[in-house]
Design a protein around this nucleic acid. Structure first.
Length: 447
RNA sequence: UCCUCAGUAGCUCAAUGGCAGAGCAUCCGGCUGUUAACCGGAGGGUUGUAGGUUCGAGUCCUACCUGAGGAGCCA
């Protein structure tokens, strides 16, 4: 800005307006709503940091200013100047007596802002997701999401982990092609990654403790409140770690993130309407139960009539099963040692009972289901090769992965946490589609 | 892929087989403390699509389309 253009009043944000009580300041933002009562106007402004009500009395301002505010339509962009006044009637504690306003762009009333301050259906809101993000609730969710991501990265960065980014474009199928999005890669078949795990096993052998944070793609035809086709995962991988080390890492990691959100994003969580007492219970240690114990819990639940279906030992838990098991605890529960037959090919068998895998799922409370899945990885070259054959996977594609066991194989373990499921749980949301700015689901690629 | 539900004004929803309605939004008017403000008025419709039954279909039947929730699968 040139010195000659310097504004006479300080430009501030609604978040910081309390520091300017009694002063005249300038805000830059949008009209959120306009109420009027005769010769009084109550324009409500938002600027991305908060919401504040302005007051314009007809006998206190010029006719031009009064008319230009009176003519403002919802979401018109505007630069307003006024005197900040504390008022106990105001939700944020402050109001602004407007003394000047410059309309940057007035929304045409013939084509008004589609999202009125009334109720709307999900499909309509999703069709206007690019505008829906302006609502206070959606903005608050995105701030909590950003805090969760920052907390996750801080947790690992401060504990000797190195961020290593796995590729997003990957060659031939790793765990079967049915759930992969195919991409034409210069006339060669490539796929969007469905997990960075195999690659960060390689970087873990190079750097010791690593993590990745990036997008993941699954072409599953799932239409539930827990599924997106494009979602973000944070995945740590640790050389020489065992399953027990991994479970300790997972519970400390989740507790750290929840505490950080309570510390830094309490106003946003309150805007969303989260029951904070549920989050304040989250502390280490988390309960650790084996698959066998979980199955017993489900069968007892069925006998009491609390679980609809009788669970057969050997199967994987369905969503209602996970909800029941997690409902028995007031914090996330870690279920470990599933039958190897229902788990991924790369998981280390339990040396005590080789038919079980050294793996763990972390189930969030309040019915949010699995937010973390992890395991100790196979350390032996011969066993891994055997598993690749058993799963009828192309050995050539895994040559590099086998090399990790050929050249100094060690016990190692890691997990993946789905960011959107963590955000949905911490915010107490009904659906993961509100946890990401532009969700991709089975039936939505727009906007 | 399967099960259930839904599609009527820009939005949210009503309408026993018998004239297509309301609230919000938009426009006009009123109100000096409104809190999703309120009060009065105006404009706004190919009832998802195609057939069928009927004197008459938004409503009943058939097929299809679109979407939502759930199952499976998964984080």
């Amino acid at each position: 800005m040139e010195p000659s253009e310097k504004l006479e009043t300080p430009v501030t944000t609604i978040r910081e307006i309390g520091q300017h009580e009694g002063q005249t300041v300038t805000l830059r933002g949008w009209l959120y709503n306009l109420r009027e009562s005769g010769k009084l106007l109550f324009p409500i402004f938002r600027d991305g940091s908060g919401v504040i009500q302005g007051v314009v009395a007809k006998n206190a301002v010029s006719p031009d200013l009064f008319d230009s505010i009176k003519g403002l339509t919802q979401e018109s962009s505007v630069i307003v100047t006024g005197k900040v006044r504390a008022d106990k009637r105001a939700p944020g504690g402050y109001e602004m007596d407007v003394t000047d306003a410059q309309v940057v762009q007035r929304v045409n009333p013939d084509d008004p802002y589609p999202i009125s301050p009334k109720e709307h259906g999900v499909d309509f809101l999703m069709e206007h997701r690019h505008l829906w993000l302006r609502s206070p609730r959606q903005a608050a969710i995105l701030r909590v999401r950003a805090e969760i991501i920052k907390a996750a990265r801080d947790y690992f960065d401060d504990r000797g982990f190195t961020l290593t980014d796995p590729p997003i474009l990957t060659p031939a199928a790793c765990e079967g092609t049915t759930t992969l999005f195919p991409v034409d890669y210069f006339d060669e078949q490539a796929y969007l990654t469905q997990s960075g795990q195999l690659y960060i096993e390689a970087t873990a052998m190079a750097l010791g403790k690593v993590y990745s944070f990036g997008p993941t793609f699954r072409a599953e035809k799932s239409k539930t409140r827990r599924h997106l086709t494009e979602f973000w995962m944070v995945e740590p991988e640790v050389a020489f770690a065992t399953l027990d080390d991994l479970m300790t890492l997972a519970e400390e990691f989740i507790t750290f993130i929840v505490k950080r959100c309570l510390e830094k994003r309490r106003p946003e969580l309150e805007t969303i309407g989260r029951d904070l007492s549920q989050l304040e219970k989250i502390a280490t240690p988390f309960p650790r139960i084996s698959y066998d114990e979980a199955v017993q819990m489900l069968q007892e639940g069925h006998a009491k009539g609390l679980v609809e279906n009788k669970f057969e030992w050997g199967g994987d838990f369905g969503s209602p099963d996970e909800t029941y098991v997690s409902s028995q605890f007031d914090r996330p529960v870690m279920v470990h040692r599933y039958p190897a037959a229902i788990k991924a090919f790369y998981m280390e068998p339990d040396p005590q009972r080789p038919e079980f895998a050294l793996c763990v799922d972390v189930l969030a409370p309040e019915g949010y289901g699995e937010i973390i899945g992890g395991s100790q990885r196979i350390g032996s070259y011969d066993l891994l090769l055997k598993r690749i054959h058993e799963h009828e996977l192309p050995e050539d594609a895994f040559k590099w992965y086998l090399d990790l066991r050929k050249f100094g194989g060690v016990p190692h373990a890691g997990f993946g946490m789905g960011i959107e499921r963590a955000v949905a749980w911490i915010c107490g949301l009904e659906h993961v589609r509100e946890t990401i700015p532009f969700p991709r689901t089975l039936h939505r690629l727009y906007p």
